[in-house]
Design a protein around this nucleic acid. Structure first.
Length: 484
RNA sequence: GGCGCGGUACCCAAGUGGCUAAGGGAGAGGUCUGCAAAACCUCUAUCCGUCGGUUCGAGUCCGACCCGCGCCUCCA
């Protein structure tokens, strides 16, 4: 049984989808006023793990992620550059998708944009007006939270105890109560305006998620994710709007990802500890190493991003690739007496049990590494059969359907090593010139010209190729290019 | 002030009442090797922020305290 910690109720609960075998998932997506940073990616990687695990356990997942392309910040940014909203947000949307792919995050089924769903939002606002949950004031429309008694259940706050933030009321609109929030904002100079049946204006921040989730998932669905900072007010307001308008429970399970900090501090441009994915890749890291780091801390724990931790992720991930390489090197006819079946079964059990327990990734990874640790000695002794190696490689593949960060294995370069990387779906070929250098090095080694041999090895390392000499021949693996 | 999270080895990080406290990284010694790398073997927390308490038994439950952090209408 899969269990998730539900923010609504604050307890870990058995997960039972509304429809057997089918999960409807909504994740709060980017506000495209800037390029995403690694904190955004942490939340997306967590959602990807959740989704992949549900799929791995046999669920069909319908995944929707919104793109907020109209709000205070996008409007302000577009105006500052003299661009249309569309032209302003386009590069950020493109960057979001490109980095998503680099991090091996599986695409959602729908990426609805706020600007493309104004009629749906208007429909909800209209329903809220008709039912008396909303009121008009100076051309804007507000949600009256005192007419929705369940308000505050998600974030568990009493509004009386709540102290207004230091920034005060940023809305600059008049409301009946300070806690009421805008559903629809009156037209202002230099702001985009939509002419609608509830009047001219533009949507408030929260209404898009209520409108778009209902359109693609229905008024009631299984899981809603986001960062902890969205719990209040964003998700609280979504619940109020959706449930008041539709009269049914909005979401059964709320899963929130904790923040990422850098060197123990909140990321801020002014502190110089603000990183985007591109900043990290520019230092020579593989995006999948970043994925390992973002994934390897439990999603409800604060993740402290440091380059030391990233380096540890690089090495840990490489160990998996080396293991795949060792499995690939087991000769075609190898017999071997080791019973790997029970080892794989134990690893699978631990892997699944960990993830079923509110996505306990540490336990799941430990199961995988424990398998590697117990099989490597058997490989050294030549006790793993070719068939056994295939079973082991298939399990790594299976786990990677959830983890999504499998490194490329080591490959045969020359000699008798039987590289089976094709079997693992990670076939890679060396450029002819690199292969020629390896052959040249082999000749130098045979002639005991070790100075020449070592020079060539260093040269290839600078191009991101590690060479390893084994008694069965030379093998290579791909790494980030090393500075000389 | 309100709500919430966390403090487990040199670093990261599981474990939440009971055999010898997972796993990864780093380090030390050894095997293999021309050297290196990988892999293997051995070692690296009598102790889980502090102090009390409950219990036959506690990182694991209770209380107090100390420290770090997040949110409280921009924020994943």
């Amino acid at each position: 049984m899969i269990r998730f910690h539900n923010t609504l109720g604050g307890r870990t609960e058995d997960f039972v989808p509304m429809e057997p075998g089918r999960v409807r998932l909504y994740a709060c997506g980017p506000t495209v006023y800037d390029f995403p940073h690694i904190g955004n990616w942490r939340a997306n990687v967590f959602e990807d793990l959740l989704k992949r695990f549900l799929i791995y356990r046999g669920f069909q997942v319908v995944h929707v992620q919104n793109i907020t392309d109209v709000d205070d910040k996008t409007i302000k940014g577009a105006r500052a550059r003299g661009l249309s909203l569309d032209d302003y947000t386009r590069p950020y949307i493109e960057a979001f998708f490109a980095e998503r792919d680099a991090l091996n995050i599986r695409p959602a089924d729908h990426y609805p944009r706020a600007t493309g769903h104004i009629p749906e939002m208007v429909g909800i606002v209209k329903a809220l007006l008709d039912k008396g949950f909303a009121y008009r004031k100076d051309g804007s429309i507000y949600f009256a939270i005192d007419r929705f008694p369940a308000y505050g259940r998600l974030s568990r706050v009493n509004l009386e105890d709540r102290r207004p933030g230091s920034r005060g009321d940023a809305d600059e609109y008049e409301k009946e109560s300070v806690h009421d929030f805008a559903l629809w904002k009156a037209p202002k100079a230099d702001e985009p305006v939509w002419e609608t049946e509830i009047g001219p204006g533009r949507p408030g921040w929260h209404i898009e998620c209520s409108a778009m989730s209902a359109k693609y998932l229905g008024p009631s669905f299984d899981i809603h994710c986001g960062g902890v900072d969205n719990i209040f007010p964003h998700h609280e307001n979504e619940i109020a709007q959706s449930e008041a308008a539709n009269g049914v429970k909005f979401v059964n399970y709320w899963l929130h990802c904790h923040h990422l900090v850098v060197d123990g501090q909140k990321m801020a441009k002014s502190k110089g500890n603000f990183y985007r994915l591109a900043d990290i890749l520019a230092r020579g890291y593989d995006p999948l190493d970043v994925r390992v780091l973002l994934l390897s801390t439990h999603y409800r724990k604060m993740l402290n991003f440091t380059f030391e931790a990233l380096d540890q992720a690089v090495t840990a991930r490489r160990r998996i690739g080396d293991f795949l390489g060792e499995l690939g090197a087991v000769p075609a006819g190898a017999a071997g007496d080791a019973a790997v079946g029970p080892l794989v079964e134990a690893a699978r059990a631990g892997f699944v049990a960990g993830l079923e327990d509110d996505l306990n990734i540490a336990e799941a990874l430990a199961a995988l590494f424990t398998l590697i640790k117990s099989v490597n000695p058997l490989l050294v002794e030549g006790r793993v059969s070719r068939a056994g190696a295939d079973v082991l490689a298939a399990f790594v593949e299976e786990a990677d359907a959830v983890l999504g960060f499998k490194p490329s294995p080591t490959h045969k370069a020359s000699g008798r090593i039987d590289a089976r990387s094709e079997v693992m779906g990670t076939a890679e070929v060396l450029k002819a010139e690199d292969q020629a250098r390896i052959d040249e090095r082999q000749r130098a080694r045979a002639a005991k010209d070790f100075a020449r041999s070592d020079a060539i090895r260093r040269e290839l390392l600078e191009r991101g190729i590690i060479l390893e000499d084994t008694k069965d021949g030379v093998r290579w693996k791909r790494v980030a290019p090393q500075k000389p």
